[in-house]
């Protein structure tokens, strides 16, 4: 092991960390925004809405993320209409394409997590809320959602850690996230063991920090904890 190479690689790899963090944060926010309506659509009384949401979730959970990224980054350029549209400056950038793929991917997984959480709310609570004249929106906000998020938090936390790991696929479309920087450095220095070890340690620190944040959130939301 050449420790000097490892120390010299550190600043470059930290540079890649920002891209990784940016991708993960944006993908999680967008994914959350996609997941909630999708979970509600999956539980909708209107069948076509259920089918569309099911097809979306089935496709994005049943195919590799790499295919999804390639489908968006390389695939969309096949269509003249897209190349000529106002969206093209966005859709030809590897950053935006990766972000869209990550967001759609985590949105599908998170939708299932939320759906499970919503289904765990006892039905008589909802009936009681309606009986005292609460509107459906207020019922969701006050009765269903707080219980859903508490129930879904462990699985959702897991999903956020999986997103950190999934963001490494950004390196396959030339982006210089932690993995992208590591691959470049490994090819330049011919010292893959040293470089990948440092990169792996950064990922470990990142996933560990996220799991601690999730534990803290779970502890905060734990209703069985005695309140002072």
């Amino acid at each position: 092991m050449n420790v000097n190479v490892m120390i010299e690689a550190l600043p470059d790899l930290i540079g890649g960390l920002w891209l990784t963090l940016g991708l993960v944060a944006l993908a999680l926010i967008l994914g959350f925004a996609i997941a909630l309506p999708t979970a509600l659509a999956r539980l909708s009384a209107w069948a076509p809405l259920r089918w569309i949401a099911f097809a979306y979730v089935f496709f994005f959970r049943g195919t590799p993320l790499l295919v999804q990224i390639f489908l968006i980054y390389y695939g969309l350029s096949q269509f003249e209409a897209i190349r000529g549209s106002v969206l093209w400056p966005v859709l030809r950038e590897p950053f935006w394409c990766t972000l869209i793929a990550l967001a759609l991917n985590t949105g599908a997984y998170t939708a299932e997590v939320f759906r499970g959480g919503i289904l765990s709310v006892a039905h008589n609570q909802i009936e009681a809320a309606r009986a005292i004249g609460m509107s459906p929106a207020t019922t969701f906000r006050r009765i269903i959602w707080p219980q859903t998020i508490r129930q879904a938090l462990p699985a959702y936390g897991n999903e956020t850690i999986l997103m950190v790991k999934a963001s490494s696929l950004a390196s396959t479309v030339t982006l210089l996230d932690i993995t992208g920087v590591a691959r470049t450095l490994a090819a330049e220095t011919y010292m893959p063991i040293e470089i990948y070890t440092v990169a792996a340690m950064i990922y470990l620190a990142l996933t560990f920090a996220m799991s601690q944040i999730i534990h803290f959130a779970e502890w905060k939301m734990d209703i069985t904890r005695a309140r002072p």
Partner: peptide
């Protein structure tokens, strides 16, 4: 294994 991306494991 659970804290490192699978792609990184493959490259390593």
């Amino acid at each position: 294994i659970r804290g490192i991306p699978e792609l990184m494991v493959i490259l390593f």
